[in-house]
């Protein structure tokens, strides 16, 4: 009986939406810039899961191609972002986003 239930694409899409919501909540709530970056990675992974699910549901490989490019851009984004964080932390000891409010112009 239990094996008769098959997870459909909707299940994966809803899970990806919940994961995106958790990531968005973390970006808005956490103060540590490193943890905010991790939450951005959560959101990117939620979108990747959506792309792969729809690629399977629509039998179109282009969804997986997009995920490939998203991964490349995410890697570059993390490298640049962590470089900025290291450059800022070297000059001051504040580790929260509140201490960087001088950047607001």
């Amino acid at each position: 009986m239990l094996s008769a239930i098959q997870p459909t694409s909707s299940w994966y899409l809803i899970l990806a939406a919940v994961l995106f919501g958790i990531g968005a909540f973390g970006v808005m709530v956490r103060r540590n810039p490193l943890v905010m970056f991790m939450c951005i990675e959560l959101m990117l992974n939620a979108v990747n899961l959506t792309f792969v699910t729809l690629a399977t549901a629509l039998s179109n490989i282009n969804g997986q191609v997009v995920v490939f490019f998203v991964m490349v851009v995410a890697a570059a984004e993390v490298v640049v972002g962590l470089g900025i964080i290291v450059a800022i932390m070297r000059r001051r000891n504040g580790i929260t986003a509140d201490d960087l409010s001088a950047l607001k112009g």
């Binding site: 997870p7 459909t8 909707s10 994966y12 939406a17 995106f20 690629a55 399977t56 549901a57």
Partner: peptide
């Protein structure tokens, strides 16, 4: 997003069949 998924469930309701 969940509302959008539920409203299009006849398209996405099939079991995962692969490419």
């Amino acid at each position: 997003v969940i509302a959008a998924v539920v409203s299009s469930r006849e398209l996405l309701g099939r079991p995962v069949g692969g490419l």
